[in-house]
Amino acid sequence: MLECKNINSFYGKAHILNDLCMSVDAGTVVSLLGRNGAGKTTTIKSIMQMVVPKTGQVTFLDRDITGWPPHKVARMGLGYVPEERRIFTDLTILENLEVGRQPARDGSIEWTIEMLFEIFPNLKERRNNRGKELSGGEQQMLTIARTLMGNPKLLLLDEPSEGIAPVIVEQMAETILNLKAQGVTVLISEQNLHFARIVADRAVIIESGSLKFDGTFLDLDAQPEIQGAYLSV
């Protein structure tokens, strides 16, 4: 469904992604693992073309999207959930959801506000509250719901468990499994191996912007040296 071929991305002069190759198959949940600074966020931003790779190709649904403006990438069916949440704090929950709304494309689930409120009951209760009045966990839920309003075929989640209470992390895991059951493909960047193991089918490990491991968690368990070298657990 999504494929990165030898992408090289830079921040200013800093070379972050180094000939990175990876792919995501339709209907699966893939976790992108690696320690801080390994290039996880840059990978996600490079897929969204918020950081445009200098060389290499990103293809989505067999189309080369490299160099496209991010809004066209989003309209192709890629849904981006940023690490820092970036909800619109002055807008109400309903207005936040409205910003994310895009017409459905063939083959994607068509999300309605009611469906999202079923998954995120907290948001329903507070639908007329402004973003800044929400707790951290609620904000995290809102970013996901907002992106789902665009009816994405593939959801890119950047470190959803970072900086939130353990009890919310559990809810988050349930939500992701729930989404998967509904047929949404997910690429999730994580540092938390426990979390990744629960939600994902496959692990992709990167270090210094290059692929180091690609396989199931069973494969990963069979290679403890990989975990030691790249995940600092």
């Binding site: 353990p166 009890v167 992390v169 559990e170 979390f195 193991r197 629960i198």
Partner: peptide
């Protein structure tokens, strides 16, 4: 309210 039931680790 905070730590949760530890489901993460159990499932793990």
């Amino acid at each position: 309210v905070y730590l949760g039931g530890g489901h993460l680790f159990e499932k793990d």
